[in-house]
Amino acid sequence: MAIVEVSGLNKEFRRNRRYQGAFGAVRTLFSREYTVHHAVQDVNFSIEEGEAVGYVGPNGAGKSTTIKMLTGILVPTSGEILVDGRVPHQHRQENAKVLGAVFGQRSQLWWDLPVSDSFELHQHVYGISDDNYRRTLGFCREVLQLDSFLQAPVRQLSLGQRMRAEMAMALLHEPKLLFLDEPTIGLDVLAKDRIREFLRTINRERNVTIILTTHDLKDIEEICPRLIMINQGQVMFDNTVAHLKSTVGDEREIKIEFVSDPGSIELMGGNLVRDEGARKTIRFAQDHGSVMTFLSDVDSRYPIKDVSIEEVSIEDVIRKLYIQTGQNAPDESELDIWSRHRAVTR
């Protein structure tokens, strides 16, 4: 059964013109002037229970707008969404119980308190029975290895530890569906691996449906068999990662070191990417014949000293698909605004 169904989804943002001047505030209130921005346009997809889907696109493509609509935070301008059979924004509180969310850059933990305090509050907020709480927490502690820092204040945790704690918290109420917004951002390689491993485990063993947005495409390669790519509000691609590679980017990058500089050479079907005299890098599409034939062909005319063949990475493939917009680094992290303002009273 599909846990997420999206059809004909649109979201427009209207930005009212804001006025300056003495009565600007009042004029803004009654203003009818606005600009329209189409954040999401006619998006359709459906996700089955137990799937793991990567949702990617450059900044401003409409990723987080879609996620916000799926969680019921934003109301669609038009189109339909059903999450677990309900319309998210109309049943936000019921839906909250079946979904979990991790926002990589926005902590939901209490900054100055031990991790366990945030967990206990979560139990209370979601009304989790003691038995279920103990069981799920036990599982998370084991798989995420939380024990060493469960009693430490969040401010003392490394980013990797904090992320593990965020994941555990999002899972405590045993959601069917887990949203992850940039879960590995800023982590070192080891921490990333641990998080990915965990996500694979809960997806395969506990059948938790995962929807993940990321800029690190390795997350997708390792966790998500399926990839939905969005750009300028529209779905550009929706299929398996393997399919993406075979259709768009089944290319090999071949680095050849010639015995001597052959000068400009004829490349049957290959593309010269970099020319450093005796060393040349060539991109070769698979459907132009086998790499070996290509190489022996070249070798027969210009003797080759050494050769290395690399598969084109998924990142290159995707970059090719969304050349239009540049990828920027995500915004600065916004840590625990709740606590930051705690001291101020008037």
Binding site: T71, G72, Q93, A96, K97, A101, F103, R106, W338
Partner: peptide
């Protein structure tokens, strides 16, 4: 006093996905 900031920075979003 923080509401405008909370909404702008997206910190209000987690509040909307609590079952309360």
């Amino acid at each position: 006093t923080e509401l405008e900031q909370l909404v702008q920075k997206g910190t209000f979003d987690p509040v909307l996905i609590r079952p309360n």
